[in-house]
Every structure is written in C-alpha cells, then in structure tokens.
Design a binder for these strands. Structure first.
Lengths: 209, 209
DNA sequence: AGCTTAAGTTGCCATGGTTAACATTACCTT
DNA sequence: AAGGTAATGTTAACCATGGCAACTTAAGCT
C-alpha cells in the first residue's frame, strides 16, 4: 500500500480508544439516553469491533463510571469558576452556584442523570475512579455550606452536614423533576430557582442574630 | 381427576394473572431493583409461561406503569390519612406529611424509584392509567401548598405552583439522595427532615405579616 | 353442541453484555 | 535488526431478555 493510504486506511490499533469511547459514549448518552447506550453501537460509532472496549474497561458499568467521572471534572470546573469570581457578593455567588447547578443539569440531562443517578451508585457499583472524581464535589458542598453559614446566608443554628444535604437535596430534587419531566419543565427554571433561593436566603435576618 | 386435585393441579388458566403479576412484580422490584426485573423470571415466579403476561399488558413498560400506579394509590392512602387526622395542628400536619413522604421513599426505595423515576416518565412512555393515578397526587401537592400558605406555614408571597415545585423538589431530592445512597443515609432521616422543615417553616413569622 | 374469544404455551428472532480464542502490532531487550 | 511479550483488536459463541407468531385450551354465550 502507498504511504498516502495511511490517512484513509483504518489502523489496526485505534490509538486512543479509551478516550474516544468515553467521548463518544458521552455524546451517545446525551443523544439517546443512558438506557439506550449499547456497547456494540458505541464500538461501531468509534470504528472498532464489538468487544474492543473490554480491553479498556472491565464492563459496561466501568465505562459509565468513566463517563460520569469526566462529568464531575467538567462540573468542578464550573463550580470553581463561580467561587473564584471576586466580583460577586457572597449572596450573588450563592445564587450563581445554585443557578449553575440547575442549568448544568438542564443542559446535560442524561449526563446529570448518570452522574447523580442510581445507575452507577446503587449497590456499590461505583468505580474508585468515579468516587475520586465525585467525592470532592460532595466535600466542597459541605465546606461551602459552612462558609455560607458563617457569612450569614444560611442559618448558623443548623448542623452543617444536614444543611448541606438539604440544600443540595433541593437542587437535586429540582434538577430531577426537570430532567424526568415530572411536574416541572424548563420554562420555569429561573422562577423555581428564585423561589428556592428566597426560602433559603430569607434566613439571613434571623441567622445573623 | 378427583375433585381434590383442583387444589394441587395447576389450572391452565391462572384466574387472576393480571393482579398476580403486578403484586409479584412489586415484590421482585423491591427485592432486586427495577433494572433486574425480567418478564421471564416474573412469569416463572407466578407459575406461568414466559409470554403469558402479554395477554394482560402490551409490554414491559405497561406492566411497570401498572405497578407504579398501584404505588400511587398506596401513597394516596397514606396522604389522606394525615390530612384527615384532626388531632394534629396545621404545622404538625405539614411536618407529618413531609416525614411520611421521606419514610415512604425510604421504606419502598425501588417502588419510589419507579414511581418518580425516569423509567416510566421519560419520553411520554407513561400509561394513561398511570397518569390517572399519579396526577391527583401532584394536584394535591399544589392545593395543599395553597392551604399551607393561607395558614401562614409557607410564605404567601411566593407563587403557589413554584413553591409547590420547590418544596416537593426538596422532598424528592432528599428521597433520591437516600435511595441512591449518595451523600446521605437512612440513619439521618429525621435530622434531615427536621433541618428542611426548619428552613421552610421559619418563614412563618414574615409570611403572616 | 358449536362458535368465539380470552388466556396460555412453545418456537423463533433480534439485541446486547460478556467470555474465549485467535490476530496484529507496538515496544522493549538484546 | 531479531525476537519475544504484552497491549490492543477481531471473530465466534453463549446466554439472558423482550417481543412476535402460530398454535392450544377452555370459558362462556347462543
């Protein structure tokens, strides 16, 4: 074969299968939903045979965990961007964080579903890699809650961990209602967030006492 | 065959397959999770052949919807029990409702997952039967929110629908975190609920102005 | 009794996850 | 450069599952 063929001809070794699979899987999941992702279709879309993926992931769950881990990394970048923005007041920062969270979920529903859904978390099926990527986010949430309490945005009287669970629960709940199309739709994201923030931030006056 | 055989011998016609399937499916789902429910295993457990179910349900989704619908009926009974209990004050009633909701989810995690998860709600895959069973609950939530606002338990200033979405979102979020085992576990249900209720009900003073 | 139809049954097919055995190539050692 | 090894891909095959078709049984009405 001629040298020029190298560009057209498929190499026997893909070269970057692992990453390609994660990327392609992310797209496919966002396009067709988690439950419609099949390793076979995925393999074909990447131009590789059915079982090639098994040389990079122990099984489907492992791949899904990798996709989710990638999602957490992306989410963390957004998170940090808000907290490094010094032009915002404390309250603006909190509001922005809340809005970003819901927006992230609304814009990447299937990815969010994967990241925070039972598919990969139930029955200890989460990978170590995933946990390493995800736990810092949880941790962050608690730390920030402590800060917000100190700033008087959230009630100081509440146990920090519980408060973090509840406030995150609210974001998570709203996100899920949106994603699952239950009882809420994306037309009202802003209003819903505003309402939730009003509930939480109204504590300010009594909390700083 | 003798008359007595009727008790031992399998009848060709099951007699009450539809209900049996829903009941068995509910149990199997609670035992092994939604994703592990297979129509074949289910059929065997009921003592019927693989495809018998198709004479009662158009497909698997249809069966799942029936199970979920049953769940909504069960939940409604609990709901009404609280609201008919006249010995409770308004606030006690609200607290009880909140606690019951989380408890229902914690005690029937898989059923809750099915009822409020994307499996049956995404892509308009919900059955009419299911919608008929479920919508009243959503409706109820809105009506009760209006009442709670009128009673001064929740801020009157907020749009009722948004408030209902947010408060339900919080319950839903907490339930999901518990069920999916993310960041929260069942040891702290009471404390989490208490924290959430404190956030919501603290509005009282400003709301009644 | 006989017809119709609901309710069950077995056979069959496609999809999809996963393992096993084989093929190819990258890469390291000598 | 030659040769060996491990990594990476490939095909074949297995098994579980959802679902359709064609056939069977029996319940129920006329």
């Amino acid at each position: 074969m001629s040298e020029g063929d190298k560009n057209n001809k498929q190499k026997y070794h893909h070269g970057n299968l692992q990453n390609s699979l994660v990327t392609a899987a992310t797209k496919m999941i966002e396009a067709e939903g988690i439950e419609n992702l099949s390793l076979r279709k995925l393999a074909i879309s990447v131009g590789v045979s059915r079982t090639a993926a098994y040389h990079h992931f122990t099984d489907k769950n492992d791949l899904l965990c990798a996709v989710a881990a990638q999602g957490f990394i992306a989410w963390k970048a957004i998170e940090e961007q808000v907290f490094n923005d010094t032009t915002l007041t404390n309250e603006q920062q909190y509001r922005q964080f809340f809005l970003n969270y819901i927006q992230f979920a609304a814009e990447n529903p299937s990815l969010y579903d994967l990241m925070f859904g039972r598919t990969i978390w139930k029955e200890a099926s989460s990978t170590q890699t995933l946990r390493d990527a995800a736990y810092p986010s949880f941790q962050y949430q608690v730390e920030m809650t402590k800060t917000w309490q100190a700033q008087g945005l959230l009630p100081k009287s509440e146990n920090t961990l519980r408060l973090a669970q509840v406030t995150w629960g609210t974001m998570h709940g709203i996100a899920r209602l949106l994603i699952d199309g239950i009882y809420a739709d994306s037309n009202n994201i802003d209003e819903m967030c505003e309402c939730a923030l009003n509930l939480f931030l109204a504590q300010k006056s009594t909390a700083t006492s």
